[in-house]
Simulated assay, not measured.
Amino acid sequence: MADATHVENENIRRLKDAAAGTAGGMVQVLVGQPFDIIKVRLQTQSTTNPQYTGVADAARKIAANEGPLAFYKGTLAPLLGIGACVSVQFAVFHQVRRNFAMKNAETRGDRSEDLTYGQFYVAGAAAGIANSGIAGPLERVRILLQTQPSSPSRLFNGPLDCVKKIGAEQGTLRGLYRGLVPTILREGQGSGFWFLTYEFLVRHMASSNNTTRDQLPAWRLCLCGASAGAMFWLSSYPLDVIKSKMQGFGGDAKYKGVIDCVRQTYAQGGVGAFWRGIVPTIMRAGPASASTFLTVEMTMRLLG
């Protein structure tokens, strides 16, 4: 009976983790999408004949040429998919975290919440790698939708049409999983630092203010989340640039693989080419990550 109750409690805990992650992921998309489309446009534009000179120029031209709704181009797929992605991230993170806690309790007698920061990083990296299988195809579709010409010259009528045409031209799996290697590397590295930074700051703030995690006010959670978002991208951004180039228009024919993409990117723009678009990314990371962690924390408190 005790074992059955334990299994039931664990399953309920996993469902709560997944539900909170889904809510956080959907909020993340709504908050961050306008910044993301600017980032992708800057990352994937030609280095010899760039269309945009910077963040402000990209925002102005997108609004003028395509209208304000263009900042939410390709939103449907990530709105549904990123909810699933973040759900997987948080579910895996908390499961690995609990596994570490049990191991610590058995070997050192530590309290369940006393993970090392290295363990937090590993749990976050595992969450990111697990998420890659969903994130890769979603971002492939999103990037193609974000970078396609405006009406009436657009190539895809929406996410499903994009998937259909990718499948017809390249094969569904091969086409959708283009850029999977840099996606795995980015998600593993970035998510490791994302969760580590957040947990470090939450623990520090709770300790400094002589309170518990559940009693931290929303603004402090947002500050922790925003800082974690910045660390995600600062630790993994060059990998994201490579991923975007490989997944964008012409990437299939232009790059033979990850190493070839790295070589060509460096030859065309030096080290700076691997950081193109970092400004809107950091601008997006703050509010998007803050809203994600805040939504997850508040949902978990609501669910109990």
Rank of each mutant, 00 (worst) to 15 (best):
G286C: 14
Q268E: 15
R178G: 00
G229P: 09
P34W: 08
R284M: 15
A70F: 11
P238Q: 00
A127T: 04
G21T: 06
I129A: 03
D110Q: 11
F195L: 05
S289I: 11
E8I: 11
G269A: 00
D214P: 09
C222W: 11
A218Q: 12
K165F: 07
F249Y: 10
N209K: 14
L42R: 00
S291Y: 03
A20F: 02
E199N: 15
Y177K: 03
A226C: 03
M283P: 11
A290P: 12
G188L: 10
W219H: 12
G167M: 01
K73V: 04
Q215N: 10
D214S: 03
T107V: 07
D57T: 01
I82P: 13
S291N: 07
F293D: 04
C85V: 15
M246T: 02
Q45T: 02
V181T: 06
R154C: 10
T5A: 10
L185G: 05
G54A: 02
D36S: 12
M26S: 01
Q89V: 15
L145T: 04
G124P: 13
S236Y: 04
S227H: 07
G286T: 13
G175H: 03
D36G: 14
G118H: 07
L216E: 08
V271Y: 07
L30D: 03
G32A: 01
P78I: 00
L144N: 05
T212D: 09
E169C: 04
A126W: 11
T211L: 05
G190W: 08
V141D: 00
V279S: 01
G286D: 07
Y177I: 10
Q28A: 11
M298R: 15
R60G: 04
L173N: 02
E66Q: 13
L76F: 02
G83Q: 03
L239N: 03
S227K: 11
S151W: 13
A127Y: 06
T281Q: 11
V55D: 06
L160P: 10
V202K: 13
I184D: 06
G136K: 09
F71D: 00
N49F: 15
T75G: 05
R13D: 02
V279C: 04
G21P: 09
P68E: 04
L294A: 02
I242C: 09
I184A: 06
L221H: 09
K103S: 05
A130W: 09
T22I: 15
D260K: 04
D36F: 15
N9W: 10
P137T: 01
R60K: 14
V29P: 14
R13W: 10
T197G: 00
I184N: 02
A226L: 06
P182W: 02
W233N: 12
V7F: 10
T75W: 14
N49R: 14
F274T: 04
G133P: 12
D36C: 14
E106K: 10
G136I: 05
G109T: 02
Q170M: 09
T183L: 13
V27G: 01
A168Q: 12
A230S: 09
